[in-house]
Design a protein around this nucleic acid. Structure first.
Lengths: 159, 159
DNA sequence: GAGGTTAATATGCATGCGCTTACGATGTGC
DNA sequence: GCACATCGTAAGCGCATGCATATTAACCTC
């Protein structure tokens, strides 16, 4: 009697013994573990996670302002300055005043920056493929596709 | 010529334009977004994320020591004390000295704790199901199965 | 040209968290 | 009985982060 009364709406019996752990309870530790696993690769190239994130986003398209970059990678406007300093000092990025608006700094990857980004990402994704190889083929495909879809959602709300 | 030389091993062309973003680059923001989406539900019950995590883990099986709990939820041994204090003050958990070893504190959910855990998790998973409903059925199944498999791995290494 | 706005930068503050140390209470081995 | 280990607790340090403020240079409007 007490078993069924709470499963009224929806087809997911989350009451009592749930059918699965919470998504965040699986996603967050997995994400942390992956970041930790990437760290040695980044360390070997003298890159912080923020620096790597910057390289990744700059590669897609050159960005006009640092604020836009900060917002895109969900970092603090003032905190990425040191990151950009370090990347510029290693000639991995260009940071030139926009001739059209000299307040802004045009950001772009240098060839060396692109090369390093490629090397690091290749190493990381090679490792990831080894992990994904543990999954059956269709499961792997569904995982990747679902992950891409969900992570592309603009903003999530549960209510 | 330069295009193919680096894709020697494996079937994933991660060099140049990668076929997909890094896993962590999708997982971590998605996990953060989910946690943020859960926050209002937890706030409504006066629970912190740590407190909810404790409730989740205590429900599976009673735990003998606080250290074991801390390790299980990857929290700091000393930091969960305040969390347990608060949960105990609200009578959501029991924390009794183990008669066999009075140094240890036996931890378990009270009926009220289990009830609250059920309510909160039900609300959260209801919201999650709405998100998952955005995915095609087989994609959703693969995503969930892959996620469960990967998050169950004891320790990840990319090298 | 004066006033208001925006970008980049520097700086400070508060928070949360991982890590370490210290201590008292308890248990174990000799 | 005594040395040592273990558990819970308290306190502090250090680092990363988010948030806010202030400054300077450049732009824009009138």
């Amino acid at each position: 009697m007490a078993m069924a009364q709470n499963v009224a709406q929806g087809d997911s019996p989350a009451q009592g013994q749930p059918a699965r752990p919470d998504l965040a309870a699986m996603l967050v530790p997995l994400g942390r573990a992956l970041m930790a696993a990437e760290q040695p690769i980044l360390n070997a190239q003298g890159l912080t996670m923020w620096a790597y994130t910057v390289l990744l986003h700059l590669d897609e398209k050159p960005i006009r302002t640092q604020s836009a970059l900060a917002e895109a990678i969900r970092a603090d406007k003032t905190r990425i300055i040191a990151v950009l300093d370090a990347l510029e000092a290693r000639a991995l990025i260009h940071r030139q005043p926009d001739p059209e608006d000299r307040r802004a700094r045009l950001l772009s990857l240098t060839p060396e920056g692109r090369l390093l980004r490629d090397r690091v990402q290749y190493a990381i994704q090679q490792g990831e493929e080894r992990l994904l190889a543990l999954l059956p083929a269709e499961e792997r495909e569904g995982f990747l596709r679902g992950l891409r879809t969900l992570s592309a959602l603009p903003d999530l709300t549960l209510e």
